[in-house]
Design a protein around this nucleic acid. Sequence first.
DNA 1: TGTACATCAGTGAACGCGCGTTCACTGATGTAC
DNA 2: TGTACATCAGTGAACGCGCGTTCACTGATGTAC
Lengths: 208, 208
Amino acid sequence: MMEARHTSTSERRQAQLDALVDAAERRIATGGIKALKARDLAAEIGIALGGLYNLVPDLDELALRVSSRTLNRLGEALTATADRWPLATPDDAVNRLVAIAQAYLAFARGNLSLWRTLFELRLAGDAVLPEWAANDQLRLFHHIAEPLAVLLPQQTEAGRGLTARTLFAAVHGIVVIGLEDRLIAVPPQALNAQIEWLVRATCRGFST
Amino acid sequence: MMEARHTSTSERRQAQLDALVDAAERRIATGGIKALKARDLAAEIGIALGGLYNLVPDLDELALRVSSRTLNRLGEALTATADRWPLATPDDAVNRLVAIAQAYLAFARGNLSLWRTLFELRLAGDAVLPEWAANDQLRLFHHIAEPLAVLLPQQTEAGRGLTARTLFAAVHGIVVIGLEDRLIAVPPQALNAQIEWLVRATCRGFST
DNA sequence: TGTACATCAGTGAACGCGCGTTCACTGATGTAC
DNA sequence: TGTACATCAGTGAACGCGCGTTCACTGATGTAC
């Protein structure tokens, strides 16, 4: 391993902070939020235990930073998917919704622990949701609302918002339960097909 | 408070165990699984800390007993609902599915912590699911499979099973996200309507 | 360029708390005669 | 019915572990002159 040289103290600090968040992300990805231990992290990035608290006020903030990253990566994945599907006709819109739902599944599959952590954090917090998290969520949300506008042009913005939330929650439910190994789960090989079926079925439900 | 007299030691033990599970249920209902503390429980049922371990080998078993109760109550609630809806025509079947989904939402609402605990337990366990839990799950599952048999008589048992799982997961997702206070959640007042809409839309999807 | 001093990143032992579980002991209950 | 003994439910102090966070200290880095 090369030992990097840093011209200034602040550069060094930034590099350490990056290394810390990287390490935290790796730990959570491997063992979930409960694997985020101060001593492990300090050892992994090669600083003393106490030094951790020069970089970050507490471990909660670290978990938040990791979740922020995860949410952004999810956003990028969905954007990339959306960009691959045109949005001219209602049929396009349905296809895009299916593609986005599948991309959501793929992301959850490929980032299981990180993705789960996204939903576990709330449980702890009486504190309010930070601003950035709110914005991130709304941005993701827009990926669903956009095609719905093509499918339901006559509906109000608010009505479409409600539909988008319902659709997201339904797909999310299939993914959550599907990626656990429960008896009642849709088996993993069938998940893609079932999600597609659900999205198409509900879209068909719009017209009637 | 009356002090109950017990004719035999084993009766007394059973009464204590019942009191313990009651107390555990109350604690979880109030503060979630993390509120299940040995000292609190012992104090609440009026025995010494160590005595707890004469009644139950460890706290995990206690949590399992509580979840078993919850699952059974959920089962009863769904059965009661199913019994109120006939199942002769396909229309009946759709109505019953809607009613069952609503009953699921109502149960989750009315037993928020206990119901969440049902899904949190697994996270901890590498251990296999106990037999009774498996049976409980399958029994619940049957409430969905039954009306589906009326709607999809031409499909195989397995195919209907898959549909049932997907439908359950979708409704579950709406409930989960709806009962958290997330930005992206379907607002609580709209939950019933949205669930009904989703179930009817997917059922309409069957015919096409 | 060299010297004196100040700052603050970096250190790791120690604090503090929570909490499940154990264990040596006691006293009430039940049995044998 | 009474006595001696055995059992075991019941007790709570103590163990043990995990772990986030603090804090007094040190030494390297940077600044002033």
